[in-house]
Design a protein around this nucleic acid. Structure first.
Lengths: 110, 110
DNA sequence: TTTGTATATTCCTTGACAAGAATATTCACT
DNA sequence: AGTGAATATTCTTGTCAAGGAATATACAAA
């Protein structure tokens, strides 16, 4: 899994931005207004989100409209997939490990 | 979405720990050994993962066996779900927004 | 009860990063 | 060309978190 995606999403205000953009693309000023953030901070956060590939810019006149990009979300999704299988198949993996432990100890005593 | 989960996963070594525990529960020393990390750092990381609900401890003698917990992953999954719908339904939301922009500008000129 | 093993905690230092304030850049419009 | 609007960048400061080293705690076994 790409830690850059997670780092980008882990910051509260960036998460709010991402959740806002889930509704629609927005220009910087609009994001700042709706989330009650200062414009420079929004620009900085968008830079981080851009580098992580989570958003893309579309310049229209002086405005820069930011839009979510699916790829990182899909990657996160398929990473999660590798965990879903675990809950489904072996819910008893703790007991399994304890068994292994006991057997190891037997071997060591020999 | 809970930012604590994301913060916990965003740290590279913690992510490695989580991915190791995906295979099986392990005691602290075993985690340290397999990931070539120092024991105290592993304990600290596990504390963060515990507070986020990502792992649970099972004491066995002097050992403490750590095991993944499904809840945070499921929550992350259902959060991602809210994004999947977007890519499926409106791939053209940028154009939609541009239309809204134009209409707004018309109104302002009146 | 002492010794060894496994793990947790504390203290310290250092690096990263987020916010604030100020300034720079870009573009449209007159 | 000059002005205003939208956005980006820079600099500074404070905070937080990760690693290293040392130490504390818990338990087992002799």
């Amino acid at each position: 899994m790409n830690t850059m995606t997670l780092t980008a999403l882990a910051e509260p205000n960036r998460l709010r931005i991402v959740e806002l953009l889930r509704d629609s693309p927005y220009p910087v000023g609009e994001i700042a207004k709706r989330l009650v953030l200062r414009q420079p901070q929004v620009s900085k956060h968008l830079r981080v989100l851009s580098k992580a590939g989570l958003v893309e810019v579309h310049p229209v006149a002086q405005q820069r409209i930011y839009q979510l990009q699916p790829k990182p979300f899909e990657e996160l999704d398929s990473w999660l997939e590798t965990f879903r299988r675990i809950w489904e198949t072996r819910l008893d993996n703790l007991d399994e490990y304890l068994q292994e432990l006991k057997e190891q100890q037997k071997r060591e005593k020999k």
